[in-house]
Design a protein around this nucleic acid. Structure first.
Length: 266
DNA sequence: ACATTGACCTGAGAGC
DNA sequence: TGCTCTCAGGTCAATG
C-alpha cells in the first residue's frame, strides 16, 4: 500500500480522527523505532497531543505543537487504525497511542519494514535524507520534473522509484504511470525525448491525484487503469492483450506489451 | 560515482 | 497436513 497516495490518505485519516486529544498512554515495539529507545519515545509523547500533519513523499510528519515531530513511515505493510474497542484492533500493532477519550490510534506493520521516530524538523529531515521534491508538489512543474530526472543513467522505472529524484512513487504506481503514458518500463531515461518526458510528467500527476481521489482504493480506480489486473491472468483493460511481467531493478514490473511500446526494443 | 543487488522482516499461497 | 519455495506496494548497505 504505502506509496504517496496511501500515505496521503493515512495523513488525512489521522487529521480526521486523532487531533487535539491528550495522549494518555503510549506503547511501542522496539523493532519499528529508529534512533530512540522505547522508554524515551513513550515518555516524550505521553501527555502531548497531535496538532497537525504534513507529508513528503512516503513520509508522514505529525506535529506535537512544538519540536520534536513524530515521523511515520509505513514500509510495505504499514497502516493506521483508530478505534475504541479492542476487538476492533488490527493485528501486528507496533505502536499504540491511547487518548483521553478512550480511543486508540494503532500503527500496524506486519513486516516491520516501517519506521517510527522523532525528528526536530520535517524540512531538515527531508534534506538529510536527500529526498527529491514531492511528486505532487504544486511547484513541481513539467520543467522542474524533467530537470529532476534528467541525467539519471538507468531505466525510467528506476528513476520514478528513486526517492532522491522525486519522492513518493513506488513499485505499484510507477507501473500505472508508465502504463498511462505508454512507456516501456526499461526504457533508459537518456533515450527519452521532450515529448515523451512531458507525457510522463502528465501521467505522474494524473495517476497520483486520481488515486487520492478514490482513497487509494484499487477497486475504485478508473476502468482504464492496469493496477487491478497486475496479478493472475491479467489482461490489458485497453486492448485485452495479456499483461506481461519483467524485473526492473529487482522489482516485478507489470505492463502491456502492446500499449507500452515507447522505448521497447526488438 | 552511480546504478543495481541483496539483506532486512513476516506471512500468504502454490505445488508436491 | 506439512514442507519448501516464491512472492509481496519499503529502504539501506554493499557491490560491480
Amino acid at each position: 500500500m504505502p506509496e504517496l497516495p496511501d500515505v496521503e490518505i493515512f495523513r488525512r485519516y489521522l487529521d480526521a480522527t486523532s487531533l487535539h486529544q491528550s495522549i494518555e498512554r503510549v506503547r511501542a515495539e522496539v523493532d519499528v523505532l529508529k534512533d530512540i529507545s522505547v522508554r524515551r519515545f513513550e515518555k516524550t509523547l505521553k501527555g502531548k497531543s497531535f496538532e497537525g500533519t504534513r507529508r513528503h513523499g512516503k513520509y508522514a510528519f505529525v506535529s506535537l505543537g512544538e519540536a520534536p515531530w513524530l515521523l511515520l513511515h509505513f514500509g510495505m505493510t504499514g497502516f493506521l487504525k483508530y478505534y475504541k474497542n479492542n476487538e476492533k484492533a488490527p493485528s501486528h500493532v507496533r505502536v499504540l497511542f491511547t487518548f483521553q477519550n478512550g480511543y486508540h490510534l494503532a500503527y500496524s506493520c506486519q513486516r516491520k519494514l516501517g519506521r517510527v521516530k522523532l525528528v526536530d524538523d520535517p524540512a531538515r529531515f527531508v534534506r538529510s535524507q536527500g529526498l527529491g521534491p514531492d511528486a505532487l508538489d504544486p511547484d513541481l512543474g513539467a520543467d522542474a520534473f524533467k530537470q529532476a530526472i534528467k541525467g539519471f543513467g538507468g531505466s525510467v522505472k528506476s528513476a520514478l522509484m528513486n526517492q532522491q529524484l522525486i519522492a513518493g512513487i513506488g513499485n505499484i504506481y510507477s507501473d500505472e504511470i508508465l502504463y498511462q503514458a505508454g512507456i516501456f518500463p526499461k526504457q533508459p531515461v537518456a533515450q527519452m525525448d521532450e515529448k515523451i518526458l512531458d507525457r510522463l510528467y502528465e501521467a505522474v500527476k494524473e495517476v497520483l491525484m486520481t488515486a487520492i481521489d478514490v482513497q487509494a482504493d484499487p477497486e475504485q480506480l478508473p476502468d482504464t487503469y492496469i493496477i487491478p489486473w497486475r496479478h493472475g491472468e491479467g489482461r490489458c483493460p485497453r486492448d485485452g492483450s495479456p499483461i506481461e511481467r519483467l524485473k526492473v531493478s529487482g522489482r516485478s514490473s507489470y505492463y502491456c506489451p502492446q500499449c507500452q511500446s515507447s522505448g521497447r526494443q526488438n
